[in-house]
Write a protein that binds this DNA or RNA. Structure first.
Lengths: 421, 421
DNA sequence: CTGTTAGCGCATTCAT
DNA sequence: ATGAATGCGCTAACAG
């Protein structure tokens, strides 16, 4: 029924071993026989049996990329970049770049279609790796499950993207799993995720400077003259959320607006997920740590959360003149909430996001945000996973975050600065 | 070094066969031994060898989902939905839904973390399928390559999403490849992609009613009083582009505004990718087929293309009162271009998109568009791929597209209706 | 350079 | 209900 190596060997009048050698290309073979084999392969339309190959070689060509939310461009961009570095066999930097601008449907590619019948249809496809992305949905369980599945497949490499959940038990479980993967020869790379405690198992960890970016963003707002800044944070248990929040509070404190306590590193996020428990906080009340918590609302990294949280923020403190969102998507929801309350952006309330996703520049007004080089980071992670690039010293690299000032932030209204209004 | 079935068997004092049976659960095993085996598995921290298992069983638990652009939420939403149906072992409809709103970072999940140490770490993970998404970048070659890679892995199922490239050679190559996959036992499902010519190889094809949706959208514009409607189309060679364009032209013709020729089905898209070749077309010139082409500009399915194409459209015909974009992302670019020219939306120019991606409702003004039930379609494709749902009659189902009228479309300015202005 | 020989780890017959 | 054998298709030593 299905064509095997032996069939090809017979057709080409060589041994199975020889066929294997030409297919894998990692062994000297006479040019003559080589061509004969290749022809037989094409004629028989032979396709290598992956499982058999992996079993014998004890390695597979599978490379897994774990993401929290595949519908979020934040992850899509990183995953796509990584995949482009992995899919191509080292060469063809061109095609990799093509996917950069999140552009789909390459228009000019139809001309090369005919050649595809040759490149793609036959079973040989050089050292092609199968780069696949797995959607964890942000669930620790699914993350572990996927890791096990990948381990089962003897994956060649695994790339973990996005912030981690700060649960000790889960951290430990992940760490243990990654160690086992590494022991089995799988290359593990972290992208946009803080380094592990005992990071020996990991080839490299690329961490975003969330804290620094957040700090610069809030400093920008402070320089504009804002003092009552609301913060719509992400899920409390994620590292990304904590780091961005810390950066924000660092800046607030430096400006003498934050609470002295709780500003340092390592403290768990304090705010509850849904507010409303502290009743009757008088507007324009005390500053400091109290305000800090009162002006922080946690939610998910999606639009709806931004909308809901902003409404809550506006309710708690109608005098806010600026709102910093956990990311651009959340910022969009915040904008919707602000407008719905009849306020203008940025005249009445400034809004800022994080990530600088493609749509941010198209918001009206364009969103002030912090740019994360997602594509570059993803591509680098891909190369690291393939061993095409040497890891940074210590296996850890911090990736810069650049402040992008645009139309959604402006100085606060003058009359708002007057106490009591 | 690595723990094998035999090790587990020895530890549990049974034969390897028995261990295999408990692990696969598809064979009667005494409860006592069963537990003994399971304990041994946990104690030894055994992880099944996927390749070996697949080789022996001649099937794997890999399910591939092909997308054109992973950074595009259009695909991300479908892929995520499909993956949620595939990943979970039939049950737990709840978790599947959780990913719906494109929400990442499930906030409430930390409570269940500890249980993960049990569910996820051990080698057994019931009939878990490994749902993976592969990013083709819209390139036919990569599409074929991925299909080959998946074939090599003896994938259990493959889901192809998004419009196809209308190149006969490529169509044939894909068809042939899918037939081979089906012959090898792989279940093939098409999602948001038109049925194949000889569709026997395919379990089911879920096609979006792009044509109908586009027609209704343009009818809406016509009802509003627009007559000069620019169309920013996608890549000329894709089915999605053609179908949407045809729907648009159908509506135009029905209103007596389209050219008699070229309106029917099956004609290749006429407009060149970059215009400007026909010089000095006098404004307010002849209607009909001529205008139809003049008012159509092709580009990619991304924001930049929408921006550039709209600028071109505005140059060719400053009197356009409405612009229909290939999709929402393109519409965003169109909006940017329109504003840059000092025009207001919708007062001066109405804008419409397609797909109704999450961000569309947040555009200012909110985007009139055509809603495609991406999540539902993806989920259904996932179930079809898993054999959890019976295919529609004939294996083909058309998925409705619903017009969403929002703020970005309005009647044209009265003075614009005056000829010569 | 090429052919021969052994397994890789597991799922299945077939027995019992 | 369980154990013993057989082979899935391929790669990797070894010869030669």
């Amino acid at each position: 029924m299905t064509v095997t190596l032996a069939d090809v060997a017979a057709r080409a009048r060589v041994s199975a071993a020889t066929v294997s050698r030409v297919l894998n290309g990692n062994y000297p073979v006479a040019e003559a026989t080589r061509e004969r084999v290749l022809r037989a392969v094409d004629e028989l339309d032979y396709v290598l049996n992956g499982p058999a190959s992996s079993l014998a070689a004890a390695t597979s060509d599978l490379v897994g990329i774990l993401v929290n939310d595949i519908a979020d461009p934040f992850f899509g961009i990183m995953a796509g970049a990584a995949q482009s570095e992995i899919g191509e066999s080292g060469a063809e930097d061109d095609t990799g770049r093509a996917g950069a601008g999140s552009g789909s449907g390459r228009a000019g590619s139809s001309g090369r279609v005919t050649s595809a019948g040759r490149t793609g249809s036959s079973g040989r496809a050089g050292g092609e790796k199968l780069a696949v992305v797995c959607n964890t949905g942000g669930s620790p369980e699914r993350e572990l499950t996927y890791l096990t599945l990948l381990q089962r497949q003897r994956a060649a490499a695994v790339i973990l993207t996005g912030g981690a959940v700060e649960d000790p038990a889960h951290q430990a479980a992940i760490s243990a799993k990654l160690t086992k993967l590494a022991d089995a020869g799988t290359r593990v790379v972290l992208c946009g995720r803080p380094p592990l405690a005992g990071g020996e198992a990991v080839v490299a960890a690329l961490a975003f400077d969330n804290r620094g970016g957040a700090r610069r963003l809030t400093e920008h707002l402070l320089a504009l003259g804002h003092t009552r800044i609301g913060y719509v944070a992400g899920p409390a248990e994620r590292t990304t959320t904590r780091h961005r929040l810390e950066g924000h509070r660092d800046a607030m404190q430096a400006a003498g607006l934050g609470g002295g306590a709780g500003g340092g590193a390592g403290d768990g996020p304090g705010g509850g997920l849904d507010g409303g428990e502290r009743a009757g906080a008088e507007p324009g009340g005390a500053r400091g740590a109290y305000d800090e918590e009162r002006l922080t609302v946690h939610g998910l990294y999606d639009r709806r959360s931004g909308y809901v949280a902003t409404l809550e923020l506006l309710r708690r403190e109608p005098e806010v003149t600026a709102i910093v969102a956990a990311n651009d998507t959340v910022a969009l929801g915040a904008c919707a909430a602000i407008r719905e309350r009849g306020l203008r952006i940025p005249e009445d309330v400034s809004v800022a996001g994080f990530d600088d996703l493609p749509f941010s520049v198209d918001a009206v007004p364009a969103l002030t945000t912090v740019r994360l080089p997602l594509f570059e980071a993803g591509a680098r992670a891909g190369r690291l996973a393939m061993g095409k690039e040497t890891p940074p010293p210590g296996g850890i690299a911090t990736i810069g975050a650049e402040l992008m000032v645009r139309g959604s932030t402006a100085p606060p209204r003058v009359d708002t600065a007057v106490p009591g209004r």
